[in-house]
């Protein structure tokens, strides 16, 4: 089979599954049914069952992935729409994000150290709370394993989306601000995208948290690694 046909198949399968998962999610409204989770898990299972390598899927998958960059840029729009409201809340927003950025890097290092993992693996954990492109460039500066760093970013994103209802209850987060800051700081673009489906205000707060925490983490991570690792 030539690459073009494989690509078309991968894209149509992904789009078809996504459409079906989206309908199911809108009907049931359960965070466990997040399309990104359902679709990715289904594709992984199918690929493993038929022994199809990831690279083969990516012949088509990359056609979808190319839209990731423009989609991140489009996040400027909710930010613009809610700018006036967010400006008044600058102090709580910045304080929350800073606490989140430090907590993410330090707790990752200390927990992994407690379990006795080697330095290489711990370095891959450091940028897990920030969006993939930033996490990759942070991992590059540490000379840590880059694909592994991307995997931890995904785990932080998906697990954050799944845990969010529970975390909001546990920490009594009722305000859109607390929820948005928590989601964006912990689960970056995946969390933001999931949140955007529920409320544009929470989604735009999450966008701010995601962007600022990416900037803050890339500045503080080298210092925190020196101090704690």
């Amino acid at each position: 089979m030539n690459d073009f046909i494989i690509g078309i198949m991968a894209v149509s399968a992904t789009l078809g599954l996504y459409g079906a998962a989206l309908m199911l999610y809108r009907k049931k409204k359960s965070p466990l049914l997040q399309p990104i989770l359902v679709v990715s898990a289904t594709i992984i299972i199918v690929l493993l069952l038929f022994r199809i390598p990831y690279e083969t899927y990516m012949i088509g998958g990359q056609w979808i992935e190319v839209l990731m960059g423009p989609a991140v840029i489009a996040l400027a729009i909710p930010l613009y729409n809610h700018y006036e409201r967010l400006k008044q809340l600058a102090v709580p927003i910045l304080a929350g994000i800073l606490v989140g950025a430090i907590t993410g890097v330090v707790s990752g290092i200390l927990f992994a150290k407690a379990f006795g993992f080697e330095r290489e693996l711990i370095l891959a954990l450091v940028p897990k709370s920030v969006t993939t492109p930033v996490a990759v460039s942070i991992a590059e500066t540490f000379e840590g394993p880059i694909p592994l760093a991307a995997v931890f970013v995904i785990v932080a994103g998906i697990s954050g989306v799944l845990m969010s209802p529970f975390i909001y209850k546990l920490f009594r987060l009722k305000h859109p601000l607390g929820r948005g800051i928590g989601m964006g700081s912990a689960s970056h673009a995946i969390g933001t995208a999931a949140m955007m489906e529920q409320s544009e205000l929470e989604g735009s707060i999450s966008t701010i948290a995601m962007v600022l925490s990416a900037v803050i983490v890339s500045f503080i991570a080298p210092i925190l690694v020196m101090l704690f690792l």
């Binding site: 990831y54 979808i64 785990v155």
Partner: peptide, 13 residues
């Protein structure tokens, strides 16, 4: 938005 993150997430395999 989440659709575009699916290919990277599949990389988990």
């Amino acid at each position: 938005l989440t659709l575009f993150f699916i290919p990277v997430t599949v990389g988990f395999m």
